[in-house]
Amino acid sequence: MAEHRFEDFNGLVIFRRNYKEKDMLVKILTDRFGKKMFYLRGANSPRFRMAAAILPFTKAEYGGDIRDDGLSFLNNVKSASQFQAISNDLFLNAYATYILNLIDVAFPDSQPLGFWYGRIEQALTLIDEGFDAAMITHIIEIQLLQVFGVQPHLESCVVCGRTDLAFDYSESYGGLLCQRHWHLDPNRLHANSRAIYYLRLFSVIDLFKIQSVTVKPETEAALKAIVDQIYQNSVGLVLKSKQFIDKMFTFDSAMPKLKKVAPEIDRSSKDD
């Protein structure tokens, strides 16, 4: 018989779907128990008492019956709030959905996430507060590579360890090659130097210390190309939510604008 216990926990709604006629399954990213699927009887009824707490892009303090195996159950909600900007904007919605989808794929159900719960909550908070959704998403993508078993060497040249020369990314070498060793990989990405800078920066940046920096559209496009290639070739992952973002990006790239994100690590950084 599966073990179960009544617990209070914080959570972020990942997704929900109808189940039978009036019931619903809601997947929640919890701060203590990893991802759990909850069965809510009568959730499709007009007067369901926890309706606001199971909306997409909601964070709440829940109380429930946590099962080690199978479905868990929600019993009560002590507080709930929704990421309003994300909920009301198609573009922000898409990026937030992709972040949650990435976490859903990266971690097995019921595996505690440790610091990743707070990191994801902070990422959604920043997007909701107006930070550039694409750049926040790239930070999550880059830092999640380790969880996916891909650990690109981004601190220095993988061959000689130098940090003072121009870099490019080599998939064959699993990280950065300095200018002296570019000849070792003719198929290196030939990437934009500013994009490489942000790839390195975003691998270590603290989402809780973000302030402001400007990134030109061409740099964002170059960084996106690097991250996309790593995910396609090294992780082997292309989610439907990512495909939607790619379509949006193609659409949006025709509209020049400056992107805003904030790394405290480099207060003076500007994409000049």
Rank of each mutant, 00 (worst) to 15 (best):
D185I: 05
M24T: 14
I196V: 12
R267A: 11
H4W: 09
G174A: 06
S268M: 00
L145I: 08
E21H: 08
D23I: 11
Y62N: 06
A195S: 10
D23E: 01
V261Y: 14
I139K: 06
Y95S: 08
Y95C: 14
E220S: 04
Q229L: 08
T125I: 07
I127K: 03
D8T: 05
D31S: 13
G236H: 05
V147I: 15
A53T: 09
A96K: 02
R180Y: 02
L12I: 15
S110Y: 09
P186E: 13
L207G: 11
I142C: 06
A262T: 05
H181K: 13
L12K: 01
L113I: 12
T214A: 10
L71N: 12
H181I: 09
I14M: 11
S156Y: 05
K240I: 07
V159Q: 13
F73L: 07
M24H: 00
L92S: 04
I136P: 02
L113Y: 09
A262I: 08
S170P: 10
A43S: 09
S110V: 13
S269C: 03
Y169E: 06
T137M: 02
P186M: 01
W182L: 11
F148G: 02
S268G: 05
F115S: 11
Q179D: 06
N76G: 13
R194F: 03
G63V: 07
L201T: 12
D65N: 15
R267P: 03
F38I: 13
D246T: 06
T137L: 06
Q229W: 00
L165W: 03
S79P: 01
M50F: 13
I103D: 02
R16G: 14
L124I: 04
Q232T: 09
D252Q: 10
Q232D: 11
I103C: 10
D68Q: 10
A53Y: 07
N75H: 12
V105L: 04
F249T: 13
I245L: 15
E3K: 10
D65L: 14
Y197P: 00
Q179C: 04
L113R: 09
A85L: 04
L177A: 14
A254F: 02
H190M: 07
E171P: 00
K216L: 10
I14F: 02
M50K: 00
K59L: 04
F48V: 09
K216I: 14
Y19V: 05
S203P: 03
S268L: 15
Y95T: 09
Y39S: 11
L113F: 02
F48L: 07
F38M: 11
L12N: 09
T163D: 12
R5I: 14
A43F: 01
M1S: 12
A221M: 08
R17L: 13
R41H: 08
A51Y: 05
L100K: 00
R32C: 03
P186T: 12
A106R: 04
D246G: 11
L29T: 14
L74D: 01
M50C: 00
L29C: 15
D132C: 09
L92P: 01
K270T: 10
A2M: 05
N18Y: 02
E61G: 06
L201D: 09
R200N: 12
P217V: 14
K209T: 07
Q229I: 04
H183Y: 13
A96I: 02
K27A: 15
D109S: 07
A80I: 04
F107Q: 07
F148P: 07
Q243P: 05
T125S: 13
R162L: 07
A133L: 01
K209G: 08
F57A: 04
G114L: 04
